[in-house]
Structures are given as structure tokens and as C-alpha cells.
Design a protein around this nucleic acid. Structure first.
Lengths: 146, 146
DNA sequence: TATTGACCTCAAGTCGACTTGAATTGTTAC
DNA sequence: GTAACAATTCAAGTCGACTTGAGGTCAATA
């Protein structure tokens, strides 16, 4: 089992060394030990970093990611909370698809302003409908609105 | 055409009044005028805010959103940049799907640590393959790695 | 007409996720 | 043995997207 130093890990994953240290500090990954000052990593960390990067692009906070795929390899979340997260992702995927369709529409539609285009308005309605399918997290407006 | 004040807009969209002001300041929306100090909005702003919220959940920066769906109703981006954004979204959707599958797997797999589970490793490989399909934005690591 | 309450502006603060910089330490090459 | 060099620590800084707070203003009610 070959050990990697931080620059090797950084090179292979594209994650900055400072970020790797940051993840270790937050407990998302662990180093196997040190040679002198220098951290040594197991090759497993490459997959873990890929997972962290993926989770980040999905919009999860580092703490969440740590709970889903901790360095110990077992989630700190119940099956049901994991399923809730997966369901969130399904809805997020729906929203992204809607947005993608709208962007393609805007790119191609000859109407002067897209808000006037019936097709575009329909796309908005579709995405509103999807949103209402299940609310995930309510914004709390300022306290001057009830 | 009924005019709405900021609290009405906030109530109907779930967007905080301070955020609405912020979007106006950044030029993502416009108010039609004032009654005294108070902003008055056209109902159109409700759709625009829905669009902004959607763009945000997709991970776009406010400036990007403004360029795609400005208050004037016509994009400040070329067709081709819009198509690039749509293509980005397609890839993002793929990544989210991969992550969702992994989370569901983690939720249900009885293996002690998922990194050891062959199915999980396969899911990681799949998502790596997808990632390599097209690079969108390279991280620039610290300058201590070449 | 005086008060109230919602809304206003502007500056400063917050939060997460890093990055940057300065000073230090250990390993390796000469 | 000493100079280079890569990594280290720790504190402070940055960035985007708001939020918060203090103090001000106006239209509508009592």
C-alpha cells in the first residue's frame, strides 16, 4: 500500500493542498501519519476527495458531506436521513432540468423579451409546479413581514 | 396592472425584503417607481424572482443570473454562451444523479465501510468517468505544486 | 395634527470554505 | 554540515450573498 504526500494527492485530485489540510482539520479525511512534519496519505484518500468534490458541486456543506461519507467509511446519518438527502437530490435534478430547458429556450427563442413568450412562461409554470411538489427549506423573511 | 409593495412581493415569493433590495441594487430586477420612499413592483417581478431563486439553487452566481435573465428580458449573453451553460447543467445533472445513487447505496448497503464495497467503488468509477467527459473549470492548486 | 408603522439608506457584520503570508521545521542533496 | 526545498502551523484575509442595526422619512390613520 503506497503512501502519498500532500502534493501527490493534490496533483492527482486537483484539490489544493490547503484545501486538503482544511478537510483533514474538519475531519472529512485522515492522514495515516507523518514523515517528519509531512502528512502521508493512503491512496484511499483519492476516492474520498473525489466524493467530497462531488458533494460540493451538489451544493452540500462540508459538514453534511462528512456525515454522509466520513473517513471511517460509515455514515453518521440514519438510513432515513440519507434517503431524504437522495430525495432532495431528485428534486434538485428536476429543478436543474427545468432551468436547463429555460436557458436553451432563451438561447433560441426569437421573441424580443422572453417574459412575453408563452413557451417560456409555460416553462416557468412547470418549474413552479415542481417546486410545490415538496418544500425543502423555507426562507425566513425579515421580521417586518409576519 | 396591479402594483405590489416589497412586503407583498416578499410574502408571495418567500424572498426576504433585504434580498429583494439587494437584487435591485445589483440590477437583476427593477422597481417601477416609488410611493414616497416605498418601492412599487410590477407583478412580473414574481416570475423574475422565481427565476433568480431557481438559478441560485443551480449554483449560478447572481451576476450570471443577471446576464441570463436580466430585468430587460433579453440576455446579455450570446446564444453560444447560453448553450454552454445549458451543457454545464447537463453535466451537473449527471453528477447529481451519480451522487444520489451513491447516497442511496450507502443508505442500504450492509457492507461495514462503503469504500470496501465493490458496488460503491463502481459508482465512484462511473462518476469519475462522467467527470472526465468534459472538464468545465480547473482548480488551480497552490503554487507549491507545479 | 400628531403618531404610528412600514419602508428607506448606508455601513458594518456574518457565514462557509478556503487562501495567503510569515515564520518554522524537517529531509535531502551537495 | 549546511544550504535548499517542501511542508507545516497559525492568524488573518477574501469572496459572494446577504443580514443586521441605527437612524431617517413618509402616507395613513386616530
Amino acid at each position: 500500500m503506497k503512501l502519498l504526500d500532500i502534493s501527490e494527492v493534490s496533483k492527482q485530485t486537483g484539490v489544493a493542498a490547503s484545501a486538503i489540510r482544511h478537510y483533514e482539520e474538519k475531519g472529512l479525511i485522515t492522514s495515516l501519519g507523518r514523515r517528519g512534519l509531512k502528512r502521508l496519505f493512503n491512496a484511499e484518500v483519492l476516492d474520498q476527495l473525489a466524493l467530497i468534490t462531488l458533494g460540493k458541486t451538489a451544493g452540500f456543506a462540508l459538514d453534511d458531506i462528512g456525515k454522509m461519507f466520513g473517513p471511517d467509511g460509515r455514515p453518521a446519518l440514519s438510513r432515513s436521513s440519507l434517503h431524504l438527502k437522495a430525495d432532495d437530490l431528485d428534486r434538485q435534478i428536476d429543478r436543474l432540468s427545468a432551468l436547463r430547458d429555460m436557458i436553451r429556450h432563451v438561447a433560441d427563442c426569437p421573441a424580443p423579451t422572453h417574459m412575453e413568450c408563452p413557451k417560456f412562461q409555460q416553462l416557468i409554470r412547470i418549474s413552479n409546479r415542481r417546486k410545490r411538489g415538496r418544500e425543502e427549506k423555507k426562507r425566513v423573511p425579515e421580521r417586518n413581514n409576519p
